[in-house]
């Protein structure tokens, strides 16, 4: 947990259009794009989505050192998955596209154009939304999220639970560090060489104080919130509710059009797949 969790939008991002988007817009864009991208296997469409996502990334002007670690992790994760997909069923692409054009090799591991194309689609599905999410991670004021969730129809109690979770993340990190160090002082060995059983045992020793202090925290916070009438009305308003700006409408309309196109493509392609081998 060495990574610092910062809640402040960076200086260089302050005046970007992606920063000015309201929380509600960001949630809607993220949800709708990631769901349509999950379902669609139309290669051209996924490429368009990727380009759309890159626009947000461009606007955020992120520094390489901010995203380097994450990009490496995503690359490793994606590569591992693609390799697994291939190893388990190298002929899967042929099954999907209903034809088989061998590129190289023979037998079980023969690499077909279909498989390669299928893997390209998988790759796109894994990465198309990454630029958008990176942009949002660094340009979103967390205070806007709960208000945004509530505005698009989440019950306010669930929205507030999310707000509270963001409120408590830094506290939990602090508590966790304290507890972990206090247990080390008691003699808990934290070496990386320990076996699985010992690792589980020692994490329990840290989690138990965390459970006790969290249960106390839940009790007191519940009281504090009741004393200020949380949950007494059917609806709730939000200080952080923002007016939608021109840029919000522009982004929402573009996203809406993209989604409509994505759905339309199911008919055009006669299913979720775009098949260039037909």
């Amino acid at each position: 947990m060495n990574q610092q969790i910062s809640y402040d939008v960076g200086k260089s991002q302050e005046n970007r259009w992606v920063t000015r988007l309201t929380g509600m817009t960001k949630i809607l864009v993220l949800l709708s794009l990631s769901i349509i991208g999950m379902v669609s296997y139309d290669t051209w469409y996924l490429i368009v989505l990727t380009v759309f996502a890159v626009l947000f990334y461009q606007s955020a002007h992120l520094k390489w050192h901010q995203v380097r670690g994450l990009l490496y992790a995503i690359a490793a994760f994606t590569a591992l998955n693609l390799i697994l997909v291939y190893l388990f069923n190298p002929a899967y692409g042929s099954q999907v596209y209903g034809s088989s054009h061998i590129l190289i090799g023979r037998g079980f591991f023969a690499l077909t154009w279909e498989e390669l194309f299928y893997l390209l689609n998988m790759l796109l599905k894994y990465v198309f939304i990454v630029p958008l999410i990176l942009a949002f991670l660094f340009t979103t004021n967390p205070s806007e999220l709960a208000a945004g969730m509530s505005r698009i129809g989440f019950p306010y109690k669930i929205s507030y639970a999310v707000e509270l979770s963001l409120r408590y993340i830094p506290d939990v990190i602090r508590d966790f560090k304290q507890i972990s160090l206090a247990q080390q002082a008691r003699g808990l060995e934290m070496s990386k060489k320990a076996g699985l059983w010992n690792r589980l045992k020692r994490s329990t020793q840290i989690l138990i104080p965390l459970v006790f202090s969290s249960m106390d925290k839940i009790e007191i916070t519940t009281r504090a919130m009741k004393l200020r009438r949380f949950g007494t009305k059917q609806r709730r308003t939000w200080y952080m509710t923002q007016k939608l700006g021109k840029i919000d409408y522009l982004v929402l309309v573009s996203t809406g059009l993209l989604i409509a196109v994505g759905i339309g493509l199911f008919w055009v392609d006669g299913g979720r797949f775009y098949n260039p081998f037909k």
Partner: peptide, 15 residues
């Protein structure tokens, strides 16, 4: 919907 306690438990739990 949720009780206040459930809301707080959810918030702390997610964190």
């Amino acid at each position: 919907g949720l009780s206040v306690e459930a809301v707080v438990a959810t918030g702390v739990g997610i964190a």
